[in-house]
């Protein structure tokens, strides 16, 4: 049994978004939004390929990764097929397959009232959540502030990210 001492509530989550596929970004968006709904502070730090979700020109066109994703059998029920049917990984490389899987996934998400990336980020930002870009990754991908979504709060160095995470009830999550 946990003692009351051990059960100190989560006060803040700082979530690192390092993946740039649709399935890579959503867990972070859902966790951040869910935190705000519980009254927990939330900040999202987009780094490396995760920045794909903040670039104005790419954020609305993120795709489900079908190459090297050996768990795509999970999506089989969306095609009314049993989940136990394996999805051959070579098929993921066929042109159009990723777009098809993305369309399918988006349809299912809409049914559950999960918003598209841009609208989801707006919701998180409206709720008081903070959206940050990683300075080093921006430099590496030759991105400027104006390439990013207008509502990004700031571009941070790793050190600044940790400063933002200060506090005894903060948890850092890597996705």
């Amino acid at each position: 049994m946990n003692t009351p001492e051990d059960r100190r509530p989560v006060k803040k989550v700082c979530i690192i978004v390092s993946r740039g596929s649709l399935d890579g970004i959503y867990p972070a968006l859902i966790m951040a939004n869910g935190a705000r709904m519980e009254g927990i502070e939330a900040s999202l730090f987009f780094t490396f390929f995760g920045l794909n979700g903040l670039v104005k020109k790419t954020m609305d066109a993120m795709k489900v990764s079908t190459v090297g994703n050996s768990a795509l059998n999970m999506a089989m029920p969306m095609l009314r097929l049993p989940m136990t049917i394996p999805f051959p990984t070579w098929m993921g490389a066929i042109p159009g397959v990723s777009a098809f899987a993305t369309g399918l996934m988006k349809k299912e998400m809409e049914k559950l009232d999960i918003p598209p990336v841009r609208e989801f980020l707006e919701m998180i930002s409206d709720s008081g959540g903070k959206i940050f870009g990683c300075k080093l990754a921006m430099d590496m991908f030759k991105l400027k502030r104006e390439d990013l979504w207008e509502r990004v709060d700031d571009i941070l160095t790793v050190g600044q990210f940790y400063e933002d995470a200060a506090g005894s009830g903060t948890h850092i999550l890597f996705t």
Binding site: N33, M37, G39, M123, D126, S127
Partner: peptide
């Protein structure tokens, strides 16, 4: 079913207003 998104789309309040009205857990 109630979601923050459906509340925001209801035209009644924006997401931001909802959080301001009920701080610390708008839907709960």
């Amino acid at each position: 079913p109630l979601t923050i998104r459906s509340m925001g789309k209801s035209g009644l309040v924006t997401t931001k207003e909802l959080y301001d009205l009920f701080p610390g857990g708008p839907l709960k």
